[in-house]
Design a protein around this nucleic acid. Structure first.
Length: 313
DNA sequence: AAGGAGATCAACCGCCGTATT
DNA sequence: AAATACGGCGGTTGATCTCCT
């Protein structure tokens, strides 16, 4: 069936970058009347724009509760972790990054994080080592790959849990929609997303996904070792965008070390599970208390997004 | 200083799900 | 039940900026 573009009917509508005057008009109107129906807003506000364009400008730029500027390490970590869980569901990811818009997160992923993972030989889509990785990335990826391979069964379990959780999420969303309308927006929601934090039931059901953390600022955070997922350990002393990345992967290669390595590996796997549980708990608790007095400041506490090992820094 | 290449990001496009008629 | 309206989402584009040669 589809739907025709909202601007199709009216010719002469302006496109392209917004001028300060237009911003002012839109801001003034919304502050005074609220946005109400976006389609009729431009005419009421004296703007020669389509409603969609106004909505986009407001949600991605003009809203007062938007944080702009460089992403913090914690925010990057959250994006990478959530992308491993949710894929390109930017609005859902934005739900967990207070004051960031899905558009901003999407841009940041496409321009920074995706490339960084690719440089490391990690497929940014699957968050797993790429087969065609080359040079240093290949070496790192290969080591990562060995560890990953050693945990394939766990990965399969994770994938299964994830799919199951997705299905449960869909069912629950349906039930919620039938039961009651969503509560008014609270401080924890993304500026752009309407996804409720209670959708995080997904996370409750999830186990540890295979995910890689890439640091951006070695100077600021020094050498770090992060544990992720059930299927690999990956540490990284990042200098800057792929200049030099050192990996510490929890898989021994020599025969002599095998036994000790297996033992160590088991311990690490337990730690990984514990680590992911803590992330999932964190996400869950922020969701379950979204209707309480918890403020967005509480959620933006960087420590909340750090793996235990990093939080100690 | 010039210009070419790559990076960035605001904004657009087209589709989807849901509500309404 | 079908058609239409609307808000929202994710992918993509293109103007602008920055860096490099």
């Amino acid at each position: 069936m589809g739907r025709s573009p909202c601007c199709e009917k009216e010719a002469g509508l302006k496109k392209g970058p917004w001028t300060p005057e237009e911003d002012q008009k839109l801001l003034a109107f919304i502050e005074q009347h609220g946005h109400g129906c976006w389609r009729s807003l431009p005419a009421k506000a004296g703007l020669r724009r389509c409603g969609k364009s106004c909505r986009l400008r407001w949600t991605n730029y003009l809203r007062p509760d938007i944080k702009r500027g460089k992403f913090t390490l914690q925010e990057e970590q959250t994006i990478i972790q959530l992308h491993a869980l949710l894929g390109n569901r930017w609005s859902a990811i934005a739900t967990h990054l207070p004051k960031r818009t899905d558009n901003e997160i999407k841009n940041y992923w496409n321009t920074h994080l995706k490339k960084r993972l690719a440089k490391m030989g990690i497929d940014p889509v699957t968050h797993k080592p790429r087969a065609d990785a080359s040079s240093a990335a290949a070496a790192a990826g290969a080591r990562y790959g060995r560890a990953a391979a050693a945990h394939l069964s766990h990965t399969a379990q994770w994938e299964s849990a994830r799919l199951e959780a997705e299905a449960r999420l869909a069912r629950e969303a349906k039930l919620r929609a039938l039961a009651s309308p969503p509560p008014p927006s609270c401080g924890l929601e993304s500026p752009t997303s309407t996804l409720s934090f209670s959708d995080g039931a997904l996370f409750a059901a999830a186990a540890a996904p295979p995910v890689v953390l890439v640091t951006t600022d070695g100077d600021a955070f020094g050498e770090q070792q992060h544990r992720f997922g059930g299927d690999a350990l990956l540490g990284c002393a990042g200098v800057d965008d792929g200049v030099e990345q050192r990996f510490v992967v929890g898989a021994a290669t020599s025969t002599d070390e095998t036994s000790a390595a297996e033992h160590h590996h088991q311990e690490q796997e337990d730690e990984d599970r514990g680590y992911w549980s803590s992330i999932l708990d964190m996400v869950n608790s922020s969701m379950s208390s979204s209707s309480s007095s918890l403020t967005s400041d509480a959620v933006t506490d960087p420590a909340m997004y750090l793996p235990p090992a990093v939080a100690e820094f």
